[in-house]
């Protein structure tokens, strides 16, 4: 509300367009890979800046099932959420939801987007 616009996601997206459309064609071929990596990093950072806060709700669901992420991981390893156990479906749904949220920033293509 008090910070000046355009915000981070907009700046990154706009700067990325300049990089890809104006700078990349002018670069020597051996610098194209680095330029594409920079564009990729900017796209990830822009999606990160635009994403709504999802962690508190996810952590609350995790706490209800097993505790913090370390306890959740340990419980999975111990077989507490194997198929056929009462919380198997809840654990699978939680893993799906948190991975989907992570992919929205890091790997939208894995979800069939982007």
């Amino acid at each position: 509300m008090l910070s000046e616009e355009p915000e981070a996601a907009d700046l990154l997206a706009t700067a990325r367009e300049v990089l890809l459309n104006e700078l990349l064609p002018a670069l020597p071929p051996d610098k194209a890979f680095a330029a594409r990596m920079v564009a990729n990093a900017m796209a990830i950072a822009a999606r990160d800046a635009a994403q709504d806060a999802w962690e508190p709700e996810t952590l609350a669901r995790m706490a209800a099932l097993a505790g913090d992420p370390r306890a959740f991981a340990a419980a999975i390893r111990a077989g507490r959420f194997d198929p056929g156990t009462p919380d198997h479906g809840a654990a699978a749904a939680l893993l799906d939801d948190l991975t989907r949220a992570r992919c929205v920033v890091s790997a939208p293509r894995a979800l069939g987007k982007g």
Partner: peptide, 26 residues
């Protein structure tokens, strides 16, 4: 190093694939 930094962001996509594979195998 930027390449190493970006490699970390491949993890969520791999995790999504792992979840789909486990689901299909189960």
């Amino acid at each position: 190093n930027l390449e190493l930094a970006l490699t970390g962001h491949m993890v969520p996509g791999l995790e999504w694939e792992i979840l789909r594979m486990v689901e299909a195998r189960d």
